[in-house]
Design a binder for these strands. Sequence first.
DNA 1: CTTATTTTGCATCGATCGATGCAGAAACGA
DNA 2: TCGTTTCTGCATCGATCGATGCAAAATAAG
Lengths: 202, 202
Amino acid sequence: MGTRQGRPVGRPRGFDVDDALERAMLVFWEHGYEGASLVNLTEAMGISTTSMYATFGNKEELFRKALERYSEGPGAYVTRALDEPTALGVATAILAGTVRTTTRAARPHGCLGVQGALATGDTARGARDRLAAWRNDVYSRVRERFQRAVDDGDLPADTDPAFLARYVTTVSAGIAVQAASGVGSDELQEIADVALRHWPIH
Amino acid sequence: MGTRQGRPVGRPRGFDVDDALERAMLVFWEHGYEGASLVNLTEAMGISTTSMYATFGNKEELFRKALERYSEGPGAYVTRALDEPTALGVATAILAGTVRTTTRAARPHGCLGVQGALATGDTARGARDRLAAWRNDVYSRVRERFQRAVDDGDLPADTDPAFLARYVTTVSAGIAVQAASGVGSDELQEIADVALRHWPIH
DNA sequence: CTTATTTTGCATCGATCGATGCAGAAACGA
DNA sequence: TCGTTTCTGCATCGATCGATGCAAAATAAG
């Protein structure tokens, strides 16, 4: 092979792509897709619009990549939660993760997957649909995990995994809205606790 | 007194203010504050921008009045629910009202109070803060109603009315998000049912 | 009929929106 | 050094944003 790996041809980038994407994610998280202007984004990213378009494509693509980064960063608690040994552990971890992630002092309050683009104009339809699909993906993964718990006998045989997953994601979304409104983590963790007190819900 | 009541001086309006406000409310409900442009709004209202500004002030004032109308129309279930004789009746009516209002086929899905302006840019900060205050007002009224239930012996003396109100409004907000994502009323009503199955929550 | 008052239609404002064209700068291999 | 490739800085694009100025139109009062 030979000259694989190593600096690519051409002028090297003057900024770190991951850093810039992280900052863009924070802007989308705080202001939503429509509320985040290119000026907001590029100033936070520390780059020009030219560099942004050359690197990320356009605003919607930037949002898509920022959402990916959110899933792998602040939203990674979802995937980790699915590895909990019991269905109750999964539900508990998801709600605790939601509370923690939506109320961190140093981060925007709320959940990017909820407040990023809930109701939008026509130009933001792509971002809105993408976010709805993102939420549905979380729901589906939780549902499949609960189905496995039923199959394994961890949950009673008459449990409806879809309903249980809808319940958990609904409480999670509610917590995210409350966090966006400024409600604190202690109060929201109590909500999470009581929502699972009579688990398995049926 | 004499000539009170009767047509006001000047050229009469060529449109019905209530009709126009209703239509504006529907546009804000569907697209959110930022996603609803003046063109969207005035076309739906059937009037010119000149008439809109002369009658309602500006976009933010129009939103304020549309939110008022929402409270007295689709959102009136909250006030009605507070008149239920028991705390459980109040909670049940609020969640059932949320499900019904956020999933009507002929109306935008979701809740204007949630998706109208959850995360916004700087120019929509007024609308966002107003909506947060609106949600907080609902919470406060439910909390006061539950406090009364404690005082009356309808709820156990050791019940925390604030916590109970936060629980109900959190589930309500979660339902609103799910409805905005397209989840149907039957499934959401089941969520509402199970959320209150072990009432009073503690 | 005249005057006062209010609304409407039309044109348009400056600002901001997302997005590009282009030339120069900075790296590469030959 | 040269040619190639890629990225950056600057200027700017057309479209849309929310918002107004102004004169004609439509009513009531005198």
